Amino acid sequence: MNTDVFITCAVTGAGDTVDKSEHVPVTPAEIAAAAIEAAKAGAAIAHIHVRDPATGKGSRDPRLYAEVVERVRSSGVDVVLNLTAGMGGDLVLGGTERPLPLDATGTDMAGATERLVHVEHLLPEICTLDCGSMNFAAGGDYVMTNTPDMLRAMARRIRAAGVRPELEVFDFGHMVMVKDLIAEGLIEQPVMIQLCMGIPYGAPDDPATLMALVAQLPPGAVFSAFSIGRMQLPYVAMAALAGGNVRVGLEDNLFLSRGVKATNAALVERAVRILEAMNVRILGPAAVREKLKLVKRW
């Protein structure tokens, strides 16, 4: 069990959730405000996606990231920023009989440099690196696509920028990729891993699967674990019991309880309550920076 836990709040994500809850932040001002409120509630890290303000759809526009980061950094509220680098790996085939040409409305494939423009410009303390490809929760003909060479190229750029990658693991094969990146000298210590559980069609969120993934962690790795939907809050306790840290937020779950829509701050507050009831100490941003050897540049 981990008795010194940090909380990450994933405040918006890129999924089609805007129409499902009025609390999902869309504009840069709303996303920054959600990150600040989560920090005040006890989150040490804010995991940031951005959305097109006009459509609410996920975006990778560097200008939107810049506005969010500037608003958070100028707020006077301390929080570790973790920017996604997952956008740009979306592949949607044209159908079961004619997979090519690709579905242009859903496909968004970008090179390593383009996927990291906002990271290299804004220099957050952390950015994500999805460590493999998979048939993702959207189903249909969508594939989250991250080839080994793409991941190596992105890892090199992230390391050169002095940013700590959060290695996103959705299934067991992704852990193999993590170990390859480490063995090739592309990931510096301490290694930071996020176990992403319960996402169709990745690793299920049952305790046995979680502990099997934990058993495969590289030595000395700092990890968090989360699940989506109704299992998000039970995973607060489960992640700590497994020796890890915690992630909550509207990217992964819209409800505080049955029929009660959540806010990011409310989810963090509930996570704090669960952990404190377990006699767990909640780590703040300064302790997280020390633990993960992060570089704060503002």
Rank of each mutant, 00 (worst) to 15 (best):
I126V: 15
A33N: 12
L167W: 04
D61V: 10
L283R: 12
L151G: 01
L93Q: 01
R230G: 06
M87A: 14
T8W: 00
F223S: 02
L81Q: 09
V214F: 03
P219S: 06
E290W: 00
D4C: 00
A43L: 02
P285Q: 03
H23N: 15
K20G: 02
G140F: 15
L151W: 11
F172D: 12
R297I: 07
V295M: 08
V178P: 02
V268D: 12
L275S: 03
D4T: 02
P62M: 04
R230Q: 10
L292T: 02
E120A: 10
A54W: 00
G56L: 01
A161P: 07
L241H: 04
Q189H: 07
R247Y: 03
A10Q: 06
L167A: 05
V169C: 01
H121M: 15
E70T: 14
L81I: 14
R71M: 00
M231W: 15
L116F: 06
N2V: 01
A155L: 13
C196V: 15
A160R: 14
P148S: 04
P234V: 01
T263E: 00
D141V: 13
D19P: 01
V163T: 09
R273V: 12
D52A: 05
R273F: 08
A240R: 11
V26M: 08
A239L: 09
A237V: 04
I199C: 09
V50H: 00
A41S: 13
D180S: 10
A14D: 13
P148R: 08
I31L: 07
M109W: 07
A66C: 03
G202V: 11
A38K: 04
G173D: 07
D252M: 11
T96W: 06
P124E: 06
A287H: 03
A14V: 14
S75L: 07
M134T: 07
I7K: 08
G58I: 07
E166P: 01
K179Y: 02
L93I: 10
